[in-house]
Amino acid sequence: MVLNSKIFFDMNFKFGLILFVSLITLSFGLHKDLNKKIDKEIRTTYNVETYSYNVITISQEVVKELTAKFDNNNLLKIHTKDELLGYAYIGKAPSKTDEFDYLILFDKDLIIMKSKILIYREDYGGEIGSKRWLKQFIGKTLTDELVYGDNIAAISGATISVKSMTLAINKLLQSIKILHNKNII
């Protein structure tokens, strides 16, 4: 796996240290704790205290084939010292007038373990942040196709965002499948 050359990962290279991510950022407000949120989701979903991650880089050629957006920064491989835990994808999708950020965690067999809305930026459609609703994505595999209103329940008053999230996850599953077939993950 190729490591990204962000400061964190430079350190990784130079010192060969295993990077324990402990993102302790006290915070208030909207984007508070974005790192903290992601960190918390990773720790609780994989049930670990500490873990490391690497950014998975994908060549431009491959990126072109994918329907989900990859910018060599938003797909992470999560592992501990001796085992692969899974993968994290951070994406954006449109809501009625803006975009929201979401996190999808896969287990090592690429089955969805967790879905979470990280930031929702408008009033309309914010219902998709509901923990109960997001549970529907858990267990979905690369071969699953999500259909709004069928295997993904509608939410009255949030139709646009529900459809958008459904579409986004469909694209993500298709893209991950391609990456998997190409042995990139």
């Binding site: 974005l34 992601i38 938003n74 992470l76 951070i90 950020d101 990280l118």
Partner: peptide, 10 residues
């Protein structure tokens, strides 16, 4: 806050 990969995109 320290920047990291995730933070940068978001």
């Amino acid at each position: 806050q320290q920047q990291n990969a995730v933070n940068t995109i978001l």
